[in-house]
């Protein structure tokens, strides 16, 4: 008897050293993935590499930056060997300043209402649809959602955006800023993002005798089996590199079982 064929979803191969192994081939196409992390944990670099690897494969990519001006982002990212400014010049990587987008849409205000949220979704979806974006990064969804005062509206925003982008076959990374990446912490700033996202990648630091070691952990990824182990990461000039974190060193000092 023939074994039943196992259906596997097509993958968006991130191209990031080690991450595709963890995800057993990549992120399922059209997923909305929340990359949550503490400051300095490498979220922006990871997301930018995700786009660059896509651009190298000829995919159209878009990056919406709300946390730092695009000029600064591009300047910081230029030091990585995997990045080529030509990708921006030729339109393979399209970097959008959220401030500029807000200004163009008349959204220069401290809080967004339902109409504003819909206008923003429409604008992002328009961009994705018009230039055929298959990889999208919003850095960060936390900064963006600060302007949306109600939890319900944040939920609607993320759900509608995710649904529309998924329909367009766009794999999205939403960067979320969190203050702690420990086991008991939330994986998102507002608590609603994590429920809506198809996948959650947590990034943070493990303190080991006064030194901070960056880690990455895939907590959830719909549509694929994946490793849920903590992985140490290193931001190198050739991109993000991962290796499984030592089991005896995967926890911070306080939870350490050393010498137990």
């Amino acid at each position: 008897m023939q074994p039943a064929a196992v259906y596997t979803r097509d993958r968006c191969v991130t191209g990031i050293h080690g991450l595709d192994e963890i995800l057993r081939g990549g992120i399922p196409y059209g997923s909305t993935v929340l990359a949550s992390g503490t400051c300095g944990s490498g979220k922006t670099t990871l997301a930018m590499e995700f786009l660059v690897r896509g651009a190298l494969a000829g995919e159209a990519c878009a990056h919406f930056t709300a946390t730092e001006p695009s000029v600064k982002l591009l300047e910081n990212i230029r030091q990585f060997e995997f990045f080529d400014m030509n990708m921006v010049d030729t339109g393979l990587i399209n970097v959008f300043d959220m401030d500029v987008l807000y200004s163009w849409l008349g959204l220069e205000k401290s809080s967004f209402d339902l109409d504003d949220v819909h206008a923003l979704i429409k604008a992002i979806v328009d961009i994705v649809n018009t230039i055929g974006v298959t990889r999208l990064v919003i850095d960060s969804v936390t900064t963006l959602c600060y302007k949306i005062k109600s939890e319900q509206l944040i939920r609607d925003f993320l759900f509608t955006l995710g649904k529309k982008l998924s329909t367009l076959g766009c794999t999205t990374i939403l960067i979320s800023e969190i203050t702690s990446a420990t086991e008991n912490a939330h994986w998102s700033s507002f608590g609603v993002e994590e429920a809506i996202a198809d996948g959650i990648i947590v990034m943070g630091d493990v303190e080991r005798m006064g030194h901070l070691l960056r880690f990455l952990q895939v907590v959830k990824m719909r549509g694929t089996s994946h490793s849920r182990a903590k992985h140490a990461i290193e931001l190198t000039p050739i991109g993000v590199m991962l290796t499984p974190m030592l089991k005896w060193g995967a926890q911070g000092d306080k939870q350490s079982k050393w010498g137990a």
């Binding site: 339109g91 399209n94 959008f96 401030d99 500029v100 200004s103 008349g106 429409k122 961009i127």
Partner: peptide, 30 residues
């Protein structure tokens, strides 16, 4: 600018708008 914003909100971005948006790094200090 407000008129243009309502056009973007109602009709959406055209390709040339998107290209210009992707090249615009700073908000016009209007």
């Amino acid at each position: 600018k407000e008129l243009l914003a309502s056009r973007y909100r109602l009709e959406g971005f055209r390709l040339e708008d998107i290209q210009r948006l992707a090249q615009t790094r700073f908000v016009d200090e209007t």
